[in-house]
Design a protein around this nucleic acid. Structure first.
Length: 529
RNA sequence: GCCGGUGUAGCUCAGUUGGUCAGAGCGCACGGUUCAUACCCGUGUUGCCACUGGUUCGAAUCCAGUCACCGGUACCA
């Protein structure tokens, strides 16, 4: 275990009040594919996801339901575990910010921050909407006033009623002190923020100057108490962001070894709406207490609903009635089709235009017609021509020339290069090239004709063997996207012992097929829609 | 307003440092085939490479301007 390099990847912690939706699932699957891929190339992976359970909104929702905040959170958490199980998410840890480990870590952070001198007490000024019981910042108010042409009136952005000016004592984090160090970080690590256009956005934001941020509240109490000022509870940044460090033992002497091994994280995958917290505030917090900053923050785009008629992308929303739920997609494509569609048809980093029409297209073209049918026709022929088994392989068969062998040459290297950079669409294209080549090869080689001529028996062995070998390799490469389908394909080739790969390059070397082994044709992997 | 980006076949997009760069996949049309999930294979798809100027022997590829669209512009997990 310890001899393998560590790879630590995280999703954001999702806000417990909102049920898991297509966007959170998308982000989590992005991470899962990376986690599975990294395991297959030999990393000791830790994949973390979890829930953000503190805050005023949770407290209020709990009261409305006649529960304590903790009871309320406990009642919502199972929905997340369920959907992640359904979607084959292979998380190694699931953190909830109400857990003792998080409370201890956050309080430890406060002490370290205070000792380092980056915390001071000040006053948080803002606007409060009494009927809505919500706070707004100056910026939010000004922006909404500009939008509705009511400048100077200070109306609630949500309900439009007049706001009250409020002042609240608060602890502040000296974010302003980190401008230069953040810019230096961006210079030294241009891929700290990915994709690169997000890096430019972050940089120009920081170049514009930084303000200190309020990190505690006294107006509600559902939060982690500030250890040296019990009237205050921790506000989102210090609580939520720290979860990534907490989960690997930050501030816990009993877990010093794990922390040393796991931190810093390799990847934080986040939505583009929260990059500032991850790319500015979070590294500044870590710098303040002298801890290492994460290697990469990857910002994914939003899923937009694409109108197949007009070609326009529209935001998903309940009011527009165009929202798509994970369950809807599962019903249409199945879990593996779901994962494949979102991972290979949306460019990570950019907004994805999704539609049911497109889902069907991709599923039928790639999964049913190309990949599924290739497996089907190949296994069928092997079983038919070789009495229910793979052909007996002559000594050194893997060294004989074959059109498919040359397509497979270097494939795993090209694939890995793309996967490492989260270019899933391109990694998939590489694999599909072999799938298409194999389908093409069947046409050229016409094994059904060869099979009719006993004198060409050796030729038939070569054809079927290279087909099955190509399928075996594709199954390995598609496994991060569709783990169960790949496992099933390998099982049908009697290669169940290859399912848990720890050395993908070796697994994808030409020649891993076992001859004379049972072949199961089985049902269609992806029935056409 | 300011900063950044994009504009290439019906759709999604590739096109490195300017000279087979006019491409791929999907969709669609037609033809062929049968091992297979009515699949697969082949052929085709009449594109002012947004517009206008400029640099150059030569630009989708460099420069300037115009138009259109998108993202960012601090407390939204």
């Amino acid at each position: 275990m310890a001899d393998k390099p560590s790879f630590y990847i995280t999703t954001p912690i999702y806000y417990v009040n909102a049920a898991p939706h297509l966007g959170t699932a998308y982000c989590t699957i992005l991470c899962d594919v990376m986690a599975r891929y990294k395991r297959s190339v030999g990393y000791d992976v830790k994949f973390l996801t979890g829930l953000d359970e503190h805050g005023e909104k949770v407290q209020r929702a709990a009261e409305e339901h006649g529960m304590t905040p903790q009871e309320w959170c406990d009642s919502l958490a199972p929905a997340f575990h369920e959907i992640w199980d359904t979607l084959e998410i292979s998380d190694d840890d699931f953190i909830r910010t109400t857990e003792p480990r998080q409370v201890a870590a956050v309080q430890h952070l406060w002490e370290r921050m205070r000792d380092a001198g980056y915390i001071y007490k000040g006053s948080y000024d803002g606007w409060y909407c009494v009927p809505e019981e919500t706070y707004f910042t100056d910026m939010q108010v000004v922006k909404s006033d500009e939008e509705r042409d009511s400048v100077g009136q200070h109306l609630c952005p949500d309900c439009g009623r007049p706001l009250e000016r409020v002042q609240e004592e608060s602890w502040f984090f000296k974010l302003s002190a980190f401008q230069d160090r953040l810019l230096a970080l961006y210079d030294e690590h241009p891929d700290f923020v990915m994709p690169d256009f997000r890096m430019r956005e972050v940089r120009s934001f920081v170049e514009g100057g930084l303000r200190d941020i309020s990190v505690s509240r006294t107006s509600f109490d559902w939060g982690i108490p500030v250890p040296f000022d019990e009237r205050h509870v921790t506000y989102v940044w210090f609580d939520a962001l720290l979860n990534y460090a907490t989960a690997v033992g930050f501030g816990n002497p009993d877990q010093a070894e794990q922390y040393a091994r796991r931190w810093p994280a390799q990847f934080h995958v986040v939505g583009k709406d929260i990059i500032r917290f991850h790319c500015v505030i979070w590294p500044a917090m870590l710098m303040a207490i002298g801890e290492a900053v994460p290697e990469h923050v990857f910002a994914h785009g939003f899923l937009m609903v694409r109108d197949d008629e007009s070609g326009k992308n529209v935001k998903m929303s309940k009011s527009l009635g165009n929202a798509i739920a994970p369950e809807d997609v599962i019903d249409l494509l199945g879990v593996e089709g779901y994962r494949y569609y979102f991972m290979t048809d949306c460019v990570p980093g950019e907004d994805g235009g999704i539609s049911y029409g497109r889902m069907e297209q991709v599923y039928n073209a790639d999964l049913a017609n190309s990949w599924g049918n290739l497996v089907s026709r190949s296994l069928n022929m092997s079983a038919k021509y070789f009495a229910g088994t793979t052909p007996e392989l002559p000594e050194g068969w893997e060294r004989t020339e074959s059109p498919l062998r040359s397509v497979a040459e270097g494939l795993v290297e090209r694939y890995c290069e793309h996967m490492d950079a989260m270019r899933y669409t391109q990694a998939k294209d590489e694999v599909m090239e072999l799938v298409h080549a194999a389908n093409h090869y069947i046409e050229d080689a016409a094994p059904w004709a060869v099979a009719k001529d006993p004198a060409r028996a050796d030729e038939l062995v070569g054809i079927i063997a290279s087909l099955l070998e190509s399928i075996r390799i594709c199954a390995h490469l598609l496994a991060p996207f569709m783990p169960e389908t790949s496992a099933e394909v390998l099982r049908r080739l009697s290669l169940e012992d290859q399912v848990e790969t720890r050395d993908l390059r070796a697994a994808c070397a030409w020649g891993g097929l076992v001859g004379g082994a049972g072949v199961t044709k089985g049902d269609a992997l992806f029935p056409r829609l």
